[in-house]
Design a protein around this nucleic acid. Structure first.
Length: 337
DNA sequence: AATTATGATTTCCT
DNA sequence: AGGAAATCATAATT
C-alpha cells in the first residue's frame, strides 16, 4: 500500500509542474497578456508574407510530386485518349476556308500598281526622283511622272515597312504561343493540331490587321492615281520651242519622217518631253500631214526655208536631205491610201 | 458656244 | 514592236 502511494505521488509529481503553473492564480499577472497578441500577429504577417514566396516552390514541389506519381503515366495516357476524342469532334468543325476574296482583290491591285511584289523599276524611279529633287535637270521633261513615281515609291516603302513590322510581330507572338504550349505539354496533353489551330487563329487576327493596312494603302494609291494620272491626262500643249524643233526635224526629214530611237531620244531631250511624246507627235504629225498636205504647205515651206538658211549659214552646200519641197520617190504619204 | 488644234489613247495591222 | 488610223479629251481660237 505504501508503495503504491509513493508511486502515485511520484507520478503526480511528474505532472505536478504543469499543475502548479496552471493552478497558480498569479500566473496571469506573471505573464502579461499584452505582449502575446503582438507577437502572434507578427507571426501571421510573416507567414502571409512568406506564403507569397513559398507558394511557388510549394506548387512546384506538388507539380513535381504529381509528375513522378506512379499513376501519372497511366492517367496521362487516359487524358490523352480523351483529348483525342474531343479533338476529333473539334476537328470536324473547323474546315479549310478559302482565302478572303477581299484580300485577294487588294493583293492583286497592289501587285498591279507595283506596290507589292518585287521592285518594279523601283531603282529607276528612285533615281528619277533623286535627279528631280537634286536640281530639276531638264533631262526628263515629265516632272509629273517623276513626282508620281516618287510618291508611289513613298507609299510602297511605308507599306513594306508596316507589313514587315506586322509579320515580325506575328511570328514573335506565334513563337511565344508555341513555347507556352510546349511548356504546358508537360502537365497536360497537347496535340500538334491544337498548336496548329492556335497559330492559325493568330495568323487570322494578324491578317485582319494587315487587311486594314492594305486597304489604306490601296486608298492612298487610288488617290494618288486620280490626282496625278488624271492631271497627266489633261493635255498641255508643248512649248513653242519644242514645236519648232520637232517641226524642223519633221520637214527636214520629210522624205522619211521616222526618227530612229536614238533620234527620238535626242529630240526628247532637246524638247524637254518624253520619248513616247516624241513618238506620239510624229505619229500625229504624219497622219495629219498626209491627210491634207495642202494645209501644211505653208508650214512646210517655212521650215524648209529655215533649215535652208541654217544650212547655208553653216556650210556652203545646201543640196542635202534638206530639200523636201521636191517630193521624193519614196512617197511615204501615199502608202495606205 | 461652236469650232479647230493638238496631245494621248485605242484598235488594228504587219 | 512599231506604225497607221480612228477616236477621245481638252486647249485654243473664233
Amino acid at each position: 500500500m505504501e508503495d503504491q502511494v509513493h508511486l502515485m505521488s511520484a507520478h503526480i509529481g511528474l505532472t505536478g509542474l504543469s499543475q502548479e503553473d496552471a493552478g497558480d492564480p498569479d500566473d496571469i499577472r506573471k505573464h502579461p497578456n499584452f505582449g502575446q497578441p503582438q507577437q502572434h500577429f507578427g507571426d501571421i504577417l510573416q507567414q502571409i508574407m512568406a506564403i507569397t514566396e513559398e507558394r511557388l516552390d510549394e506548387a512546384q514541389a506538388r507539380k513535381h510530386a504529381l509528375n513522378y506519381h506512379r499513376m501519372k503515366p497511366a492517367l496521362f495516357s487516359v487524358l490523352c485518349e480523351m483529348k483525342e476524342k474531343t479533338a476529333l469532334s473539334i476537328r470536324g468543325i473547323q474546315e479549310e476556308e478559302p482565302p478572303d476574296p477581299q484580300i485577294m482583290r487588294l493583293d492583286n491591285m497592289l501587285l498591279a500598281e507595283g506596290v507589292a511584289g518585287p521592285e518594279r523599276g523601283g531603282a529607276s524611279a528612285a533615281a528619277a526622283a533623286v535627279a528631280a529633287a537634286a536640281g530639276g535637270s531638264p533631262d526628263d521633261g515629265n516632272f509629273e511622272d517623276a513626282d508620281y513615281r516618287e510618291k508611289l515609291a513613298q507609299i510602297r516603302q511605308i507599306y513594306h515597312t508596316e507589313l514587315e513590322k506586322y509579320e515580325q510581330a506575328c511570328s514573335e507572338f506565334t513563337n511565344h504561343v508555341t513555347n507556352l504550349l510546349r511548356e504546358q505539354s508537360r502537365t497536360r496533353p497537347t496535340s500538334p493540331k491544337e498548336n496548329e489551330r492556335l497559330v492559325e487563329i493568330i495568323h487570322r487576327k494578324f491578317s485582319a490587321i494587315q487587311l486594314q493596312l492594305k486597304q489604306s494603302t490601296c486608298e492612298a494609291v487610288m488617290i494618288l492615281r486620280s490626282r496625278f494620272l488624271d492631271a497627266r491626262r489633261k493635255r498641255r500643249n508643248f512649248s513653242k520651242q519644242a514645236i519648232e524643233i520637232l517641226n524642223e526635224y519633221f520637214y527636214s526629214h520629210l522624205a522619211n519622217p521616222y526618227p530612229s530611237e536614238k533620234a527620238k531620244e535626242e529630240l526628247a531631250k532637246k524638247c524637254s518631253i518624253t520619248v513616247s511624246q516624241v513618238a506620239n507627235w510624229f505619229g500625229n504629225k504624219r497622219i495629219r500631214y498626209k491627210k491634207n498636205i495642202l494645209k501644211f504647205q505653208e508650214e512646210a515651206n517655212l521650215y524648209v526655208m529655215k533649215t535652208a538658211v541654217d544650212a547655208a549659214s553653216v556650210s556652203s552646200q545646201t543640196s542635202q536631205a534638206t530639200s523636201p519641197a521636191t517630193p521624193n520617190s519614196g512617197c511615204w504619204w501615199l502608202a495606205g491610201q
